[in-house]
Design a protein around this nucleic acid. Structure first.
Lengths: 197, 197, 197, 197
DNA sequence: AATGAATGAGGATTCATTCAT
DNA sequence: CATGAATGAATCCTCATTCAT
């Protein structure tokens, strides 16, 4: 009776695990963690309710798996994948990356945002978010050192940029508007003003 | 004879109603709406579980009351109370107002943020948030007309500003840092850059 | 702190006690004992909820008081008040008495019927119903002895007569029909056939 | 996918559904609908409390299921199964049928009687009882037409007969007496007197 | 390995009763 | 003496989790 099947204990059926993670992402962001019943989740994933417990120890482990998955993806894309380039270009990479992720995985960004404070997130999940923010701060710091970005507490700067993105994304989704190239480039210009030395 | 004590039918004991609203604000933002059990809420408010139902028809009516209370307060302070002044000064009023509210009522801003999407918010509650956002957009529009603020979709601009604030506030609260004058003025300068014509 | 105020411990305010008993009769027969909330009962009686407990030890004592009141009234009218007369005339007295009570106190008869089996009726309440039935049986027995009424177990005969009455009353009230002289005399004739020697 | 297990969506486990219906019949007639707590009901049925909600949408749906079940059974046996025969024989069929049902299912008749007025009975449940009463009235009417039964409003006659039965059954059960052949045939003779032309 | 019927602890809510006013 | 606001035990019901199949 293996416990932690989330790790690579050779998950029984990758397609099923994937379906569960995907259904969880959808439902947890549409409704809430507490507001989502496991049986409903199972139905959405097309598996039996009991099956979920073969892939995840419990509901809490499942949210954490979803969180980690997308928090990692975001970090990988936006921080690890940051090119060595002038600050303006790095910012473009970052900003457009955020929007691309939001466009490709409409639920992922809002899910990450909504669940960050959650009491049920474990340390590892929190750690990943911090890696993302710290990574972004480090990039900023380097850009400041080379005089390309305004001098200000890097974490403050990072929070402002990231908050701008989240605020705009929420507004668009509230109004049922999709993500248009126009909005992305307009906002890129504007937000860069906060960084520009 | 009237049952609806949620309205101003001279609530039986204002101090108790206040205690309930206050406990609800705290718990709903620390945990979640769904994640907060009514008995716990009652204990935190220092009243019996049944008492809550003398003041609010049900849990849903209670969240809405909390939401309306602070959404109104915010609108009153930041939009209705906006002085007729140069754009830069109006922005200072707005930005510092946001932080002042956050400092005085640490939970209120995060509560409003976390509950905006909530399915259980009724029309009236939603209307107030829109009044706030539309009001802010209108002020921006006027400032744009007079050439003091960059030309860009007002709601986009508004979302960026408000998002910046929220992002920074969350970051501070995550790190357990309080709201310092330094951070407020530093951020004010930076965010203004997004508006500056 | 006198307990049993239902007895003649000089009830504090007879009009109020009366109002409570009357409201209880109405509500307990329209809804149920368990289905009737004490606060509602208080409102219907025009008194405060707490007041009820000055007149009756608790809800259970109240139903019993209502039950006893009408069970006694019925016994007094129909059994104690039975004239010494030929059987046919005694039956007329009894049958018309039942309908008169039902007409004057629409709720009382149905209340008595509905609550007879109730677990919360105390011994005294049950005793009264038995006095009524035993009294009726005794009258029947005498009439049988004098050859005016068919020979059959008196209690069986009594149950059939009384059941006929209840059945018809319920049917009328189900159909929203009032108690008409026509129905009463028609049924009197018919039911007498069961007794006729 | 279908939620409504109350219908014949092949109830998950017929034996369990049966146990619940049976426990409900017992308890609802011993105590009351409102007076019967669901956990107690579950215990008596030998199932978990939650299980009841897999078979019945809620407590109300459960009483209705019980009511329909026995009201249908009664109608089937006594009205639909009425032979084409002389009135006296038809009456014997009806009367003995009532007592047979009462003997086989001691709780069913009293349950039906006690719950007829109930506010929580839905339209379908009420319809069945009416089918029973109307059916009985129709049979009476035919017998009147052929001069075998006294002329009197059929529904009145029906109510008297059925009321007699109920009254006697209650008396027997109050006194803890079983249903004896003697009582049944004695009462059959007597009640027939009400019908005899 | 997968299921989904069954469970019971825990949720929201009601209501008989008390007690400070 | 009368009140009705306050209470918490007890209600109905949901849902995360288990386990026999």
């Amino acid at each position: 009776m293996p416990k932690n099947l989330t790790t690579d204990d050779q998950p029984v059926n990758p397609a099923k695990q994937e379906a569960i993670l995907s259904a969880a992402l959808e439902l947890f962001s549409e409704r809430t963690y507490e507001g989502t019943a496991v049986p409903l989740l199972a139905e959405r994933a097309g598996v039996g309710a009991g099956t979920i417990y073969r892939y995840f120890e419990n509901k809490e482990a499942l949210v954490n798996a979803v969180y980690r998955r997308w928090a990692n993806e975001r970090k990988r894309l936006l921080v690890d994948g940051m090119p060595d380039a002038p600050a303006r270009e790095q910012f473009r990479h970052f900003w457009r990356g955020l929007w691309q992720l939001a466009a490709e995985q409409p639920h992922a960004t809002l899910f990450l945002e909504a669940h960050h404070h959650a009491a049920y997130l474990d340390e590892q999940s929190c750690a990943i978010r911090n890696q993302f923010l710290d990574g972004a701060a480090l990039i900023l710091e380097r850009a400041q050192a080379s005089g390309q970005v305004r001098h200000a507490t890097p974490h403050v700067l990072g929070a402002l940029i990231f908050g701008s993105f989240t605020g705009l994304l929420k507004q668009l989704s509230d109004h049922g508007e999709g993500i248009s190239e126009a909005v992305v480039s307009e906002s890129e210009e504007i937000v860069w003003k906060m960084l520009e030395a």
